[in-house]
């Protein structure tokens, strides 16, 4: 989780849950199971999830799959361009431990060593249901935060 005061966090993230705009950063197989999320069977737009073209419009950065030494620099640049509040969702086992690329000379092993990751979605690649569950968990987490702050 991003290092922030809980109160600030609740205020910032509270704005995020109405409808989240997604910027996709895919350069590997993490995308294969996310395409159905966009398509008509799962249809993410009915939950207000919209894919945008510009990181400056995005609330959530989805990093799909492994990142190489070269692409991680671009991820960091994109992450820095996104306005607060922002969240990062990392798809696939590769972002957690390197996955099947655990001994590759050119692949980074854990994404949170480079950028703050809000939620990891395991799977190789994760199924669309897992992605929806992750989104739901972010919502739940934000609601929890809001409640805690109000209770004080």
């Amino acid at each position: 989780m991003v290092d922030m005061d809980k109160k600030v966090m609740a205020r910032k993230m509270g704005r995020l849950i109405r409808s989240i705009w997604i910027f996709n950063w895919f350069n590997s197989c993490g995308v294969t199971e996310l395409l159905p999320v966009v398509a008509s069977i799962y249809d993410m737009e009915r939950f207000g999830l919209i894919v945008v073209d510009n990181p400056k419009h995005a609330d959530v950065l989805i990093v799909g799959g492994y990142q190489t030494e070269k692409s991680i620099k671009r991820v960091i640049r994109i992450y820095n361009q996104m306005p607060e509040p922002k969240a990062v969702m990392a798809l696939g086992s590769c972002t957690i431990t390197g996955g099947m690329y655990w001994d590759s000379y050119n692949t980074i092993k854990r994404l949170s060593d480079y950028i703050p990751v809000t939620i990891y979605v395991p799977g190789c690649p994760p199924r669309p249901e897992a992605v929806f569950q992750a989104v739901g968990m972010i919502f739940e987490h934000v609601n929890q935060l809001k409640k805690e702050v109000k209770g004080k």
Binding site: T68, E69, K70, K73, Y105, N106
Partner: peptide, 11 residues
């Protein structure tokens, strides 16, 4: 082309 900041032997 693919490698950036590579100081080792060609992989």
């Amino acid at each position: 082309l693919f490698l950036e900041d590579w100081n080792e032997k060609p992989p």
